[in-house]
């Protein structure tokens, strides 16, 4: 079943690419939509020159740093807020108010504080991706079946033992749901965070902006493709880690 779905997905992608190529060759679509062959050629050239790696590495570094911060801060605060009521009460209004704010709108403020720097970019990524992780973790803790906690109390477990050995594993499936959304957002924000101080920096977002200014949509597509590919790869890595840690769970994916 799973193998069949993989096959279908692969065929789907190939068919779409072939269709795109055909339309481009027949000149049924405008030239600025480029074509898979041209994009592939440019991609290869950039791989050969090494440009792609330095740009991708710079972007990945910021995205993954942001994600790491989200994972640590989001999970720790989410568990604290879920388990200790006063902490939850403290965070609820802050999170509820800030969650719907488009974090990119905070960019001018961040720039005043931290300048046009990687700190600003990582913080922007962090602020965007933090909320899904925090909210899912807190929810996960709240959703732990009461009987698990009761059974542990019955055995004489302390609050700390219950937190580490019962709450954390029981909330883990939900925590991973949040992490997955957060990881996707860090790749979305990879581009947005590079909209400042472009032209001289390294990064896939900068590549898009530079290509845009030069009217080179084929190069733009190369960057978009690489962002998509990296996002996909890291999502798969996260899923693999999840399957490892949630080996016991029926929906380990």
């Amino acid at each position: 079943m799973d193998k069949r779905l993989h096959k279908i997905a692969l065929i789907e992608v190939v068919v779409l690419l072939v269709l795109w190529q055909l339309l481009a060759m027949l000149q049924w679509i405008p030239e600025y939509l480029s074509s898979p062959a041209v994009i592939g050629k440019e991609l290869l050239a950039m791989v050969m020159s090494g440009d792609l790696f330095s740009n991708a590495a710079a972007s990945l570094y910021r995205s993954l740093l942001g994600f790491l911060l989200v994972a640590v801060v989001g999970i720790v605060l989410g568990i604290a807020a879920g388990y200790f009521k006063p902490i939850g009460v403290f965070f609820t209004p802050i999170v509820d108010v800030l969650n719907p704010v488009p974090k990119i709108a905070l960019l001018p403020i961040l720039m005043v504080w931290f300048g046009i720097s990687d700190t600003t970019r990582v913080l922007l990524i962090f602020l965007t991706a933090f909320f899904p992780c925090f909210i899912a973790t807190q929810d996960g803790v709240h959703g732990v079946k009461q009987v698990y906690v009761w059974a542990a109390q019955n055995m004489g477990a302390s609050r700390i033992q219950i937190l580490w050995k019962i709450i954390l594993p029981a909330a883990l499936p939900k925590i991973f749901d949040g992490l997955r959304v957060s990881l996707g957002l860090t790749f979305v924000m990879l581009f947005s965070s590079e909209m400042i101080g472009s032209s001289n920096g390294l990064g896939l977002g900068f590549m898009i902006l530079t290509a845009d200014m030069a009217g080179r949509t084929d190069l733009m597509f190369v960057s978009i493709f690489v962002i998509a590919l990296l996002g996909f790869l890291f999502d798969r890595i996260l899923l693999a880690v999840r399957a490892r840690l949630l080996w016991w769970s029926e929906n380990r994916g």
Partner: peptide, 20 residues
């Protein structure tokens, strides 16, 4: 007035930890 191992409770729904 608190839960403790002097009273062993069996619940209606399974309270077995699914990760163990």
């Amino acid at each position: 007035d608190k839960p403790g191992p002097d009273r062993g409770m069996m619940f209606q729904e399974s309270a077995l930890f699914p990760w163990k």
